[in-house]
Amino acid sequence: MRNEIRRLREENGLSQAALADALGVSRQTVNSIETGRYDPSLPLAFAIARHFGTTIEEIFHDDDH
C-alpha cells in the first residue's frame, strides 16, 4: 500500500521522531509505514489522518487501484 505520509510530514516540517512521538509509536514504525513495509492498523491510520487534518483515503492508496 502506497501512502503520502513522508510528503505530509515534510510539508509540516516534522521529523520521523516527532511524528512518532505525536502518534505514540516508535520512529522505526513511522519509517516502516513511510517505506510501505508495514501497513498500519485502522486505529493508527485514523490517528495519522487526524494528525494531518485529512482522511485515510487521502493518505493511503491501494497498489492495485
Binding site: 521522531a17 509509536v25 516508535s26 522505526q28 516502516s32 508495514y38 498500519p40 492498523s41 493508527l44
Partner: peptide, 20 residues
C-alpha cells in the same frame, strides 16, 4: 528513542509494529 524493537517488545512498551 534509542531503544530497539526487541527491547520494546520484551518490556511491555511495544507499539503495534513491535507486537506484529
Amino acid at each position: 528513542a534509542q531503544a530497539t524493537t526487541a527491547e520494546r517488545a520484551f518490556t511491555a512498551s511495544a507499539d503495534e509494529r513491535d507486537r506484529a
